[in-house]
Nucleic acid binder design. Structure first.
Length: 520
RNA sequence: GGCAGUGUAGCUCAGUCUGGUUAGAGCACACGGCUCAUACCCGUGUUGUCAUUGGUUCAAAUCCAAUCACUGCCA
């Protein structure tokens, strides 16, 4: 089977984790679980970016040793990922395994002449850790954060980004899926067509960072340092003899999930670095949109930070995951309100999914003491509602493969929810309570089995999105197979009797509703 | 200032590339049905000058032009 390597950005530890961080990370986790369930060998990497001026300053303000400070700051991230059922590898840029690789890469590129010494002069914003051209500066203020900028002149190493731009341009043109969505791809194309300067990759004014080998008054620029995590996290080393076998197995990355704000670093500088190293480029860089509140970007300075922990406390991890994956188109901005979240939880999770499982459980108890009956599908089931259900379920795996290939999470969930609606409608149309009253036992057994097995399929479909709920359902319906093995599409449905997956006799229990309705 | 994108039902959006049956979905709302269920589910229905104006065409939400509003990237 194939391999799949997915990454999120590594998050800057100066922030407390917010919904934006969780958004990228959940998306990556869904992909990672999905491909695992298809039997791919999956590596999912997230982590934290812990170097840079801002971090050192924050530590100083707290009167703490910087390493100690970052050791503390990383904790809320790890805890949040645990709560959200994020199943990933984790890298910190202050780890030895990372720093060694950064230095080795720096050294290799310097020997190659791709990194050369020079002088950097310009307006610099300490907060953003970015230089800005004269034209963007108004009244000495940073165009991003409006803090004061300083004129800085310092020795610096430069990376010959410009060398690789023609090749990069060609690569982007020839690989339409390299930068997604398309609007971002156009942005990058027009940006590199306007001319790209070599980037400064070291600082002398900063101490907290990876030391430049052989020139220790320099520290490696945070972005150069940070991007390398995608390699160091899977055991890369420029010296092939020092590489971990994992690297060969997983590189190139199948998708880097990023926010649209860091597109240029990932779509221009990063590929240039990889070309300089002679490594393959990632297959896809997907820049998702921002979550907005009141139409504005969520930001600390505007006081619009939303703490994921609060929402998880109130609604649970799976409802959280479901809401953010279903509500927004991944490449576009999306407006967040808690009211919408409550609506979606009630309508989709409580009414549709939760109630489907619950009502089925009740009938199963009433008619069969909770033991899933053995169906006898007959000739007449070659058409009609039961077959419709089977066909619908049979189509889902391919839908999901197609949608998730382009990171369309909301369409994926919509397809699954369409199945859930059909199952609810199936109950209505077949009216098991009538069949029971009239003692049409064969028909009743067939309907109840179809429901139970339909729920089994739904549990497997939602597993990548809502692992806890899938587990709960799996247990509740008494399934014994592997929940985490994605059901494959059957090429042909000739005889429904060939399609008995959930074992008849399984004990389908009544349990607490999966998602209680939220009353406002 | 340059380039790009967006503007469709009360809300969130699909449809636009490759013009062509009465413009769709979900939510919300109204009515009806059902009763196994978490007052749930099922059915039916309402609402749209498809941003504006003009053009091309037998035919435009879809193509073209201009305008307005908002957004992004660059300067």
């Amino acid at each position: 089977m194939g391999k799949f390597y997915v990454t999120t950005p590594i998050y800057y530890v100066n922030d407390v984790p917010h919904v934006g961080h969780a958004y990228s990370t959940i998306a990556a986790d869904v992909l990672s679980r999905f491909y695992r369930s298809l039997d791919y060998d999956v590596f999912f990497l997230t982590g934290t970016d812990e170097h840079g001026q801002k971090v050192a300053k924050a530590a100083e303000e707290r009167g703490l040793d910087v390493q100690k400070h970052v050791d503390e700051m990383v904790v809320p991230f790890k805890e949040l990922w645990k709560r959200l059922e994020i199943d990933s590898g984790f890298i910190r840029t202050t780890e030895k395994r990372h720093e060694i690789v950064v230095q080795a890469i720096f050294e290799k590129l310097r020997e190659k002449g791709d990194i050369y010494p020079g002088k950097y002069e310009g307006w610099y914003c300490i907060f953003e850790e970015t230089f800005y051209p004269e034209s963007q500066i108004e009244e000495g203020k940073c165009p991003e954060c409006s803090r004061e900028v300083k004129w800085v002149s310092e020795d610096s190493y430069f990376f010959k980004t410009s060398n690789y731009i023609p090749r990069l341009h060609k690569h982007i043109e020839e690989n339409p899926d390299f930068i997604m969505p398309k609007s971002r791809r156009n942005e990058v194309l027009s940006y590199i067509e306007s001319g790209v300067q070599d980037v400064s990759v070291s600082r002398t004014a900063i101490k907290w960072g990876v030391k430049v080998p052989g020139d220790e008054k320099h520290v490696v620029y945070v972005w150069f340092d940070a991007l390398i995590n995608y390699l160091s996290g899977i055991g890369y080393h420029p010296d092939k003899k020092k590489q971990d076998p994992n690297f060969k197995k997983f590189w190139p990355a199948d998708v880097h999930i990023i926010g649209k704000d860091i597109l240029k670093f990932h779509a221009v500088i990063w590929p240039a670095m990889l070309m300089a190293l002679g490594e393959d480029l990632p297959k896809m860089i997907f820049a998702h949109g921002f979550l907005t509140v009141g139409g504005e970007k969520i930001s600390k300075s505007r006081g619009k930070v939303i703490d994921p922990n609060e929402l998880i406390d109130k609604y649970g991890a799976d409802a959280y995951r479901y809401f953010f994956m279903s509500q927004f188109t991944f490449g576009l901005d999306g407006e967040y309100t808690e009211e919408t979240m409550i609506k979606r939880i009630n309508a989709d999770l409580a009414n549709d999914l939760g109630n489907l499982v619950h009502r089925t459980a009740n009938m199963m108890k009433k008619y069969y003491e909770g033991n899933v009956p053995n169906p006898k599908y007959s000739q007449s089931d070659k058409e009609g509602l039961t077959r419709d259900i089977k066909i619908q379920i049979n189509g889902i795996p391919n839908h999901l493969k197609r949608y998730l290939k382009v990171l369309d999470f909301s369409k994926s969930l919509a397809a699954i929810w369409h199945t859930i609606s059909l199952l609810n409608k199936y109950i209505e149309d077949m009216a098991p309570w009538q069949l029971h009253k009239e003692e049409r036992n064969d028909e009743l057994a067939k309907v109840m089995y179809t429901l139970a097995d339909g729920i089994r399929a739904v549990a497997q479909f939602i597993y990548p999105f809502m692992p806890q709920t899938a587990e709960k359902i799996w247990k509740q319906i008494g399934a014994t197979g592997d929940l985490k093995r994605f059901p494959e599409t059957k090429p042909d449905i000739k005889d429904l009797n060939d399609w008995v997956v959930l074992k008849p006799g399984s004990n389908f229990k009544i349990a607490e509703p999966l998602f209680p309705r939220i009353e406002e």
